[in-house]
Design a protein around this nucleic acid. Sequence first.
DNA 1: AAGTGGTCTAGACCACTGC
DNA 2: CAGTGGTCTAGACCACTTT
Lengths: 255, 255
Amino acid sequence: MAATTAMASSGSSNRIEAQPLYVKARNIMVNRLIAGEWRPGQLLPSEFSIADDLGVSQGTVRKAMDDMTAQGLLVRKQGRGTYVAEAEDNSILFRFYRLTPDDSDATTDKAEFPESDYLAQSQGQATKQEQDIFLLSSEDMVWRFERLRSDPLGPILWERLVLPARQFPDFTPTTRLPNNVYQFYSSRYGIIVAKVNEKLRAVTAPQNVSQLLGLPDQAPVLEIDRRAVALNDQVVEWRISLCRSDRLHYRNELK
Amino acid sequence: MAATTAMASSGSSNRIEAQPLYVKARNIMVNRLIAGEWRPGQLLPSEFSIADDLGVSQGTVRKAMDDMTAQGLLVRKQGRGTYVAEAEDNSILFRFYRLTPDDSDATTDKAEFPESDYLAQSQGQATKQEQDIFLLSSEDMVWRFERLRSDPLGPILWERLVLPARQFPDFTPTTRLPNNVYQFYSSRYGIIVAKVNEKLRAVTAPQNVSQLLGLPDQAPVLEIDRRAVALNDQVVEWRISLCRSDRLHYRNELK
DNA sequence: AAGTGGTCTAGACCACTGC
DNA sequence: CAGTGGTCTAGACCACTTT
């Protein structure tokens, strides 16, 4: 079977396609993730079996999988096999959620994920900005959510969340998002969020927000403009959060 | 020579030290970096030569070096060899400097590194907080700097920078820090900054800072509390910056 | 016992650099 | 041309999980 599915050899003959085999193997596998052929949580075939399938050695498949594992797309379990990562695997807390109580000890870092109160929810035509962000046309629809999120000590942030309606076909005006949205996108729609781009600013809270958060008028808040990018490079979520930073902060580790 | 320097085999005999050879090899090499035996910019021995030295195969050394390269400690140059990374190699801009003009296109992202005006500079005994941060005793001294940093359009941030005096023995009250401090630590003292921990908050600018930055009174600014951690896990720099965020933002890509 | 990923080795060949 | 890192393969053995 290697005859039909084998990838071009990297041997001396082939000047075009100067791409290592393990990169091609990786691309093929990533495309299977994008296509939904391999879904989050699924057990993949063994390395040897994929190697046969692609017509390369097991070591080459391993290198490709090493990359994908490092990127958080796959999860290996010794003795059992390799699985497509689910949003839970990456411990969402440390991956995409950076707001931390000031007194937290990092050791006693409990998985306190904030609860949500829905202030508004509607479907509407994409604005110019939303068209740019999601690559939509002016007739396309988006879902918009406004939420107030709180931890046990009280409200911590206000946020507006926008989703392209096309990707979430079964939403209704009363559909609520679970607290861990990326887990939801992954398990329900097979959408794998590969990365998130954020822009942070210090701004003065609008009056309604400072009231909701219980802050004095004109209080400074942290504005986080976040765009979640799926494996196929499409933006699947746009979110603007206004966070109180009097008892929380945004932590970042740069390596 | 493998007889004396060889690392314990991972074979069946040895239950203690359940550590893969490549991890041991990595640790040995990292320790050479910490000890200053290998200095930034230096050309390392070839993989085969190190493999002989450590009594392992070249593939094992390669795997250890792969890790270190991924971590930004080493830089490979095909056909020439492997070098200890210098701060310039990692393109400091993208690694540790996250402030970006709002209009920047990422494509036209010029390496505009802000200039510094020194407002104050002094040596003094470490405060309680500084003792905690740098693991110093009460008699130990620190250097403190206050700077105003500007890009071509004007001032963008005020910052206070603290260094443990012991690590910078030849400083004088008029020693200035170059713009790229991590490059300076690396080339002059062999100090390799492995990572940086930051805490971000939105705060109201103190009056003197808002004046220096040309902002209205009570303007919100982004406070960045940063600790730079060296390879040996010691904090070597503490910095608090107050950044205008009306025409700049802090960009972050989470993967 | 069988199957999986994890480690380690050895050897081949390629691409690039510098002499 | 020799030396380096980069890729690819094949095979051995280990550690872990499941049957």
